[in-house]
């Protein structure tokens, strides 16, 4: 352990303030991402993965706020930085791509201009220079005929092309961390694979770390070296992605892995049944006491209903938050 990790989240709590009372939407979230590493954050809708990402780039807005914990980027705490410095980090050293490439691009501005804006904004380049760099950036995300395409408006591009443009914008300034929030959910499966491949290659070339947020466990495990599984505002398990599949420690993760459809002889013979996790994610206002997964857990016992489990370190360096972990 010599250099500090690129980003370190320590005991993060995000409060939801609905005027009368505060509830913790995210609690005790800790993880770290090293330079050039790929890290996945998986969970169901509403488990707090997207707001954790927003907290990371300092963009939580009312009614959400950081209640406790620290986020350190490159050794410096982000919350303490003045607004202008936070802004200088965003887009420049921490970039983000979104779920909806349809809406994340400005409809009245040519895409080349939108890419070029990043160079002007963060690197103080002239527009002429920035326009040239925009063509290069577009070429790097394998958009054919980039010299012509820079003049196109977003509505003239397909969904996959738009996501490529988003990636070009995000990676324009060579960020240290790319946050990808459900980057392929809105795309076709074939396009999905291309985009993921592109993102992974580009980041690997440039040494950019990826924080990938998704509900798709298979996709995340495919891209990321380490994966954290979130449930109801807490990280329940953090493992290397192989270990996560081979020997999930938390009952929730096991449930997720078992609920993935599989190809194989048993499946072909129709003998394996797709498993599900019974029940639904509890609402933020009424998270159960103790372990938050206990109402849906097959192994729940008395202690699960009364005491929230602490994180336990596993033999392979993984972390799990369960009283009865395997």
């Amino acid at each position: 352990m010599t250099a500090p990790p690129l980003i370190e989240v320590d005991g993060l709590r995000i409060d939801l303030d609905d005027g009368s009372r505060r509830t913790a939407a995210v609690e005790g979230v800790s993880f770290r991402i090293d330079r050039g590493e790929t890290f996945g954050l998986v969970g169901e809708s509403g488990c707090g993965k997207s707001i954790s990402a927003l907290a990371l780039i300092g963009l939580l807005r009312r009614p959400l706020s950081i209640g406790a914990g620290a986020i350190r980027f490159d050794g410096r705490e982000i919350q303490g930085l003045p607004a202008a410095e936070q802004r200088a980090l965003r887009g420049n050293r921490i970039a983000m791509i979104f779920q909806e490439p349809m809406t994340a691009l400005n409809p009245v501005s040519p895409i080349g201009r939108q890419i070029a804006e990043m160079f002007v904004l963060h690197q103080g380049k002239s527009w002429r220079e920035a326009d040239r760099l925009a063509v290069e950036a577009l070429a790097s995300v394998r958009v054919p005929a980039p010299e012509r395409r820079v003049k196109d408006y977003p509505h003239q591009l397909s969904g996959g092309m738009r996501q490529r443009v988003m990636i070009a914008i995000a990676l324009a300034c060579g960020p240290d961390l790319l946050i990808a929030d459900e980057p392929t959910t809105a795309l076709d499966v074939t396009v999905q694979a291309e985009i993921i491949e592109l993102m992974r290659n580009l980041c690997a070339e440039r040494g950019t770390a990826i924080l990938m947020i998704s509900h798709d466990l298979g996709l995340v495990a495919n891209v990321c070296r380490r994966v954290a599984v979130m449930y109801a505002g807490r990280i329940v398990e953090e493992r290397g992605s192989d270990a996560l599949f081979r020997a999930s420690a938390h009952p929730y993760t096991k449930g997720l892995v078992d609920s993935l459809p599989r190809l194989g002889t048993r499946a072909a013979l129709g003998r394996s049944k797709l498993k599900e996790i019974a029940g639904v994610v509890p609402a933020i206002a009424d998270f159960p006491a103790g372990c938050r997964f206990n109402p849906r857990c097959m192994q729940a016992t008395e202690i699960c209903r009364s005491t929230a489990p602490e994180t336990t370190r596993l033999g392979d360096g993984g972390l799990v938050r369960c009283h009865h972990h395997a």
Binding site: L59, M96, T103, A104, L121, H122
Partner: peptide, 28 residues
């Protein structure tokens, strides 16, 4: 509340720049 305005914030645009480059052209 449009995605691209949110995206601009995430990409480090200042308020003035967002107003001039993102909002103004769209309401012109």
């Amino acid at each position: 509340s449009q995605g691209y305005v949110q995206a601009a914030k995430v990409l480090g645009y200042g308020d003035l720049r967002i107003m001039i480059t993102q909002l103004l052209p769209n309401m012109l």
